[in-house]
């Protein structure tokens, strides 16, 4: 009798577990998506080409090496080190970010022309990343606790089965009133995001244009953010993307900001 009870209980627990495993909650979807998108591997390195295209078709190019290291689980602390190649007059400029969940990041910028490192404080939520259509938050991820997430529908996008999750910021200080994310059911990468403004109009669209396998991690190597209202657009391409390259902690320091080690930036 006792044994059969235990069996029943065990079955019940495993069924419950399986159930929750198959029916992922929207919060978990977003968490997994963030992990797949921004926290893959221990560290990450890529040569980033950023093309800013104005409504009139004018272009500006930013070229940089981006180094990233995780300090903790997905959604946790991260450090970024960025070295600029282009535009030509900012060559040797470096930029460092300590990202914390739940509060604004710390940032330092090295200005070679006057040999000075300055801390920069800006709002992650709306500040543009180097003049692009991406905000800092778009580049390094948003604190998922700040939104309520709900599953709107499941549909195919670009031939892939996706969850469509609606994320509504809890605070009113955001530029958008809500965001829809198309999350690939297979690898949890966000394939498309739509941002709706306070009037309920779609105004910003993110698309993952190319996904490649890098060291076994599906990685978005080409992405676009388009502002439908201003007509402005930013295209980002990752070349030489690599994971687990062994970035030392010491890299993320003011000393290396001024003199970035060649082996990391090339």
């Amino acid at each position: 009798m006792k044994r059969s009870l235990i069996i029943v209980a065990a079955i019940a627990v495993s069924v419950a577990l399986c159930g929750s495993l198959f029916a992922v909650t929207p919060d978990e979807m977003m968490k997994k998506s963030q992990a797949a998108f921004l926290y893959q591997g221990k560290d990450f390195k890529a040569r980033v080409m950023m093309k800013l295209v104005s409504k009139g078709g004018q272009e500006r190019v930013r070229e940089m090496t981006m180094l990233r290291k995780n300090y903790g689980p997905a959604g946790g602390e991260q450090k970024y080190f960025i070295y600029f190649f282009q535009p030509a007059d900012v060559k040797d400029m470096t930029f460092m970010v300590y990202k914390y969940p739940g509060r604004d990041a710390d940032r330092w910028l090295f200005v070679p022309a006057i040999n000075m490192v300055r801390r920069i404080a800006a709002k992650d939520k709306y500040s543009s990343f180097v003049g692009s259509d991406f905000t800092y938050e778009d580049v390094s991820g948003r604190d998922l606790q700040e939104d309520t997430h709900s599953l709107v529908k499941e549909e195919k996008y670009g031939g892939k089965d996706c969850y469509v999750v609606k994320s509504t910021p809890k605070a009113a200080d955001m530029e958008y009133s809500y965001k829809l994310s198309w999350i690939d059911k297979a690898d949890f990468l966000p394939l498309k995001e739509e941002y709706y403004d306070k009037r309920g109009d779609l105004y910003k669209v993110f698309t993952a244009d190319e996904v490649k396998d890098v060291k076994g991690f599906p990685t978005i190597t080409k992405r676009t953010m388009k502002n439908l209202q201003s007509g402005h657009m930013t295209e980002v391409t990752y070349a030489k993307a690599d994971y687990n390259v062994g970035i030392e902690d010491s890299l993320f320091s003011e000393r290396y900001l001024k003199q970035p080690p060649k082996k990391w930036i090339e």
């Binding site: 600029f84 535009p87 007059d89 900012v90 400029m93 930029f95 910028l109 200005v111 070679p112 022309a113 006057i114 300055r118 920069i120 800006a122 500040s127 543009s128 990343f129 180097v130 003049g131």
Partner: peptide, 10 residues
């Protein structure tokens, strides 16, 4: 050039 870039960074 660098000042302008800095300005555009934020």
């Amino acid at each position: 050039g660098q000042y302008l870039f800095l300005f555009s960074m934020s």
